[in-house]
Amino acid sequence: MTPAIRTSGLVKDYGRVRALHGLDLEVSTGEVFGFLGPNGAGKSTTIRLLLDLLRPTAGTVEVLGEAPAVGGPALRARLGYLPGELALPPRTTAGEYLRHLAALRGGRGTARIGELAERFALDLSRDLRALSKGNKQKVGLVQAFMHAPELLVLDEPTSGLDPLLQHEFRRLAQEAAADGATIFLSSHVLQEVEQVAGRVAIIRAGVVVDVDDVATLRRRAGQRVLLQLDAAVDATALHRMAGVTDVVVDGTTVTCLLHGEPTELLRWAAPHRVVRWQAEDRELEDLFMDFYRTVPADGAAGPADAPTAATAGHGAAKGGVR
């Protein structure tokens, strides 16, 4: 079966700056695929190459079996696209603009505008200029989904949406996937894609550094665990424990990274009196740090721990929203 998206050795230069350094990617038909990476990693560049907005410097791109430049309008008729930075024209209402975009598809999708707008509580009579960021994003989502495309390419689809609408987006994506559509969505936050995506590719500095299913990735990302006990303890057992790394003992407080099940760690803690227990999912940024940490032993108590304080706070805030 032809993959929905295939890139091989894809290189893109902007003048002298190389944005993509030989990107290899394969997304199967019918798959919901997450494309993760920090800002500036080349996510939007890759996506714009898929839409034929950009032309590759070297390497190949294939979308639904065709090079975007060769497929042209007939190929783009089968795609739905949500730009990462959506800009909407002034002096037009949301409804007029959506009908115009449907007209560019030969009228396909017009019939679903009303229904989709209702799902996202989007007022079609509002002037586009007066819309908030979240409402603009709704317009973007409606135009991407309205014609039921075979392949949806969504660049940061949930940015600016509140949790309720993020949920509505996930439902819409799942419905499209159930109907056989392939969904390719980018994000810089793992949480945003893990509930919809089956597989995830991680891009860093213009190359795909890892492709995995979400569960594996989540396991690899692990959790940062903090245990505060009532008395100083001997933590040597932790250093040998499977799935536990980066153990730091500071008086009565023990912190470590946990990958996989927490059973062993809980057993070790159980005989002690535990004053405080905290376990947080790690941020994607930490995962990227892992990809750069070639010798794990060096990182145990070294500089890799420096960003912990900042990311822990950030993670807690994110956890509250979920």
């Binding site: 839409l51 034929d52 309008p73 783009r76 795609l79 800009a87």
Partner: peptide
């Protein structure tokens, strides 16, 4: 962007 990405 959306016009160039449309089937035209």
């Amino acid at each position: 962007e959306l016009e160039i990405a449309a089937p035209v």
